[in-house]
Write a protein that binds this DNA or RNA. Structure first.
Lengths: 244, 244
DNA sequence: AGACGTTTAATTGTCTGACAAATGAAAATT
DNA sequence: AATTTTCATTTGTCAGACAATTAAACGTCT
């Protein structure tokens, strides 16, 4: 674990990289305690604040956790799926908002991935996931629901669909795609009729998953993808006509 | 942008969160310059090192970039897909290695997602992506190739397949799933015959993509998924018989 | 001897003040 | 007008200090 002593800038980044590489390579196993900040400062021949900046970088990625006290220190953190969800969602959301990704592109990605999950969800769905899907579909019919709450429920429905596949890797990868769509979906105003149609499709999807009918689930998801795209296009068309 | 002054611990985490929320909400647009470290220290009523630790946390997530000099400072960074790839791959790799994710689970996720891409890749593939796929398939036939190099080429082939879909959101989401599989694939020893079979499937996939035959591409991908699982199971079975 | 409070040492979290390095803008010079 | 020099601003780094936390070691009392 060495750093370049000739480049006196970005020392904390170099130190962070050295430690990160050691973690990725397995040289530092989970729950291993790193040397104390003072020791590392001596090892790398830098000051303690510089070491601390490096540690904070790693903490931001959940690669380490710190504990105060006599037996405290920095420990290699077991990165859990739940911890990674948040980062994944944050990153995905910012990627979409900062790169002018079109609704069509994001929507296409999301439904392509969800349709990949559907067959697995159909074969493995638990009562729990089905109940969540039903509950969210029911919530979406409540008349007083704001558009934002409707979107949030939509996300919850689709996450339950994804989670029903029982594959944590899939759930993790799709968390970003599904949740990052929410800000984009929030731009759409849902009429009572469009809500009805969406909920009908949601119900059909839940029915298909319950019946373990992968083909039907895929077909309804495809229909939902098409309808969502239509809604978005109408919104865009309306805005353009207002401008013109 | 406020922090809790009553909790004197984790100040840098609180400050980082406040700034991160401001970025996500759009209150701080891309390329906006944050106040200088000294100013923020005064604003949040903390010392400069504490502010710096907060900024390093954000820098680790590529949310800001810093620049020295008179007109320097910390700027909200436009998060690019290329920047996010690296983080996504690191996180995915660690998730798999630290959570004892089985080869079967990871493999299932990867091929499910790739099959979701295949129809889009078939309809949109460019000459460039096709050339990459062909080149990698060809490389995989070289006799002197180490198992590691074979796996690396495999990853390159599949990334080209995914990128051919022309959807950056999909490419980003799948980068993690595809690349994180590499350490797991590296545990497999590929015989000459198994390599031949894999390359044959790769070639079939490339042919199907070139012919814009989504159904054929899907079928060959499914076959590849099955065969990869078989290979892994053989390795596992061999190890268990050695133990027993 | 054992249970319970006390001290103590180690470690992270934070603060203060300082200097070096980079960098663009302003001022001075040619 | 062009070029060089100076300068102010800002980040990067360092040194030393103290507060807060924590578990282990130690003492004390029953």
């Amino acid at each position: 674990m060495k750093i370049d002593p000739h480049n006196p800038a970005d020392l904390s980044a170099q130190i962070a990289k050295a430690i990160r590489d050691a973690i990725i390579s397995g040289a530092l196993p989970v729950d291993e305690r790193l040397p104390s900040e003072a020791e590392m400062a001596e090892q790398f021949d830098v000051s303690r604040p510089t070491v601390r900046e490096a540690l904070k970088r790693l903490a931001a990625q959940s690669l380490i956790r710190t504990q105060r006290g006599a037996t405290g220190g920095a420990f290699v953190n077991r990165l859990r799926f739940e911890d990674a969800y948040g980062q994944q969602i944050t990153t995905s959301t910012l990627l979409l908002s900062m790169n002018d990704v079109s609704f069509a592109t994001a929507c296409e990605a999301r439904y392509a991935l969800e349709r990949a999950c559907a067959p697995l969800s159909a074969s493995r769905r638990s009562a729990d996931h089905l109940a969540t899907m039903r509950a969210e579909a029911h919530r979406q019919l409540q008349p007083g629901l704001t558009d934002e709450a409707f979107c949030a429920s939509d996300v919850a429905f689709h996450r339950a669909l994804v989670d029903a596949a029982g594959n944590p890797v899939l759930s993790y990868q799709l968390a970003g795609a599904v949740e990052a769509m929410q800000p984009l979906m929030n731009m759409i105003t849902f009429s009572a009729r469009s809500r009805e149609k969406i909920v009908a499709l949601h119900t059909s999807i839940a029915d298909a998953i319950e019946a373990q009918d992968a083909q039907a689930a895929d077909a309804h998801l495809a229909a939902l993808a098409t309808y969502t795209q239509e809604l978005a296009q109408n919104v865009i068309a309306e805005r353009q006509s207002k401008r013109g």
